[in-house]
């Protein structure tokens, strides 16, 4: 499965980077979202995959081995939430900029005066 996921991650990064370089600010934000997915999967896959054993300690036991790695999961959980925060802020900012400037073309937003 690593091989397939490696390709998925590669495509997510490629499309994310490509979208970041668009002139439309909406596409730029979509690019951010794609990059965030790619990054989550990158951390997830790079740490090693384990099928179907969540890192939960069953009742009656004090510790557990041979489960999915909990540490990358904790990191990714943080990353998902943070990237949502960033996207939400970027979206509203872009929208207000669009309202003010009247365009979503980044090249028209270079001047400091509106």
């Amino acid at each position: 499965m690593e091989a397939l996921l490696a390709i998925v991650i590669g495509v997510l990064y490629a499309s994310g980077v490509y979208m970041l370089m668009r002139r439309s600010i909406v596409k730029l934000i979509i690019g951010l979202a794609l990059l965030a997915h790619g990054a989550s999967l990158l951390v997830f896959t790079a740490a090693g995959l384990t099928r179907a054993v969540p890192p939960v300690i069953p009742y009656g036991e004090k510790a557990v081995t041979a489960v999915a790695d909990p540490l990358p999961q904790a990191l990714i959980l943080t990353a998902i939430v943070i990237s949502f925060g960033v996207q939400a802020f970027a979206m509203v900012l872009a929208y207000r900029a669009y309202q003010t400037v009247g365009t979503d073309d980044l090249d028209d937003m270079k001047a400091t005066d509106t």
Binding site: E2, A3, I9, Y13, A14, S15, G16, V17, L49
Partner: peptide
């Protein structure tokens, strides 16, 4: 440019795993 970056990340994952 995007493909070059993406391909590198594919490679990175394969090496890392």
């Amino acid at each position: 440019i995007g493909t070059a970056v993406g391909a590198f990340f594919t490679l990175l994952v394969l090496v890392a795993t």
